[in-house]
Each structure stands twice: as structure tokens, then as C-alpha cells.
């Protein structure tokens, strides 16, 4: 997962080219290509959309249509830490909304947004499949379960402390 800051990574068209060529410039490989680009940059930069479209001989609107159809893809760079709150059935019944509310307070941003300092992005995910540990969240890909509004605060504060430690 993205532990290092990817916000300010410059788009390298050579890299985009390499990814497209790795998949043999096949139109069928749009999803894996986009996934690899997002893995690299944390989101899909608009210039990459144009570049992929040129290579594959399709309209950039076709690629844009793919990016917006599939929930995995982002068009905005995420914060340094990505928190995803599970909204599966068990988590919903277990208080996922309250968890979201509590996290929002701790990180100073709301669902679907990134905090002003670029540290946190708060997202929702349909179901992580860890229903026995409901309610749960992932922080940078790592699952934390059996949370409540208070314990999730500890998880977030730990991330904040790590940030402070790094600065020092």
C-alpha cells in the first residue's frame, strides 16, 4: 500500500507508456493498466487518461467512462493516509455511521474528501468481508476491527503521532 507520500509525484509519460506496452497495448487490458497507474500515483492523472486513449486508439472519454464507472479509481490524489470505513451489513448494524462521524472529527474532513493538510482521506467501502470483527476500517490497507468511536480515535492519533515523529 502507499505508505510514502505520492501526492507530489510528477507524472511520467514514459512510465504510462511502459505500463500500456507491458499489457501489449490491448484495449481489453484497460482495467489492469489503470490499476497499475493508480498503484503508482495514488490516482489517475488526467494526462494519463489522454495518453492511454492515444495508445489504444479510443476516445479519452471511453477511458474516463471506465474510471468513473469503477469505484476503485480516483481522479483526485489521496492524502498520505487513506482510511476506508466498511459499510457492509454487519458494520452498518454495528455503527459504521457513528464511526465515520468520529473519524471525521479526528481528522477534520468528511467522507469522500481529503483533509486540508493532505494527511488523511476518508472513504467508504461496500464490504471488507471481515463481518465478524464489525465495525471495521482499513488504514492504508491494514484492517482494524471491533472498533468503536473511542478506539478508532486511538488508531487515528497513532497516525498523527507518526507524522509528528517523522517531522522531528
Amino acid at each position: 500500500m502507499h505508505t510514502e507520500s505520492i501526492n507530489d509525484k510528477k507524472l511520467s509519460l514514459t512510465l504510462v507508456d511502459a505500463i500500456v506496452f507491458k499489457h501489449n497495448v490491448q484495449p481489453g487490458a484497460v482495467i489492469p493498466v489503470l490499476q497499475e497507474i493508480q498503484e503508482e500515483y495514488g490516482y489517475i492523472p488526467p494526462a494519463a487518461i489522454q495518453r492511454i486513449a492515444n495508445h489504444l486508439g479510443v476516445f479519452s472519454s471511453d477511458i474516463y467512462g471506465m474510471v468513473t464507472f469503477y469505484a476503485q479509481f480516483r481522479l483526485q490524489p489521496p492524502g498520505k493516509n487513506v482510511i476506508k470505513v466498511c459499510h457492509g451489513t454487519a458494520c452498518h448494524l454495528g455503527g459504521a455511521e457513528r464511526l465515520t462521524e468520529a473519524i471525521s472529527q479526528h481528522i477534520g474532513t468528511t467522507e469522500g474528501r481529503t483533509s486540508k493538510d493532505g494527511q488523511f482521506t476518508l472513504e467508504r467501502v461496500a464490504c471488507l468481508g471481515c463481518c465478524s470483527l464489525a465495525p471495521c476500517v482499513t488504514v492504508n490497507g491494514e484492517i482494524h476491527g471491533r472498533l468503536n468511536p473511542e478506539s478508532v480515535g486511538k488508531v487515528v492519533n497513532k497516525l498523527k503521532e507518526e507524522k509528528t515523529a517523522n517531522v522531528e
Binding site: G88, T89, H92, A126, C127, G129, C130, C131
Partner: peptide, 12 residues
């Protein structure tokens, strides 16, 4: 593509 919320059989 186990997408039903509340299902984790396939993952397991």
C-alpha cells in the same frame, strides 16, 4: 467478485 455486503465465504 464477492460483493454482497455481509458475505465473506469466498474470501475465506
Amino acid at each position: 467478485d464477492e460483493g454482497d455486503p455481509g458475505a465473506f465465504m469466498d474470501r475465506s
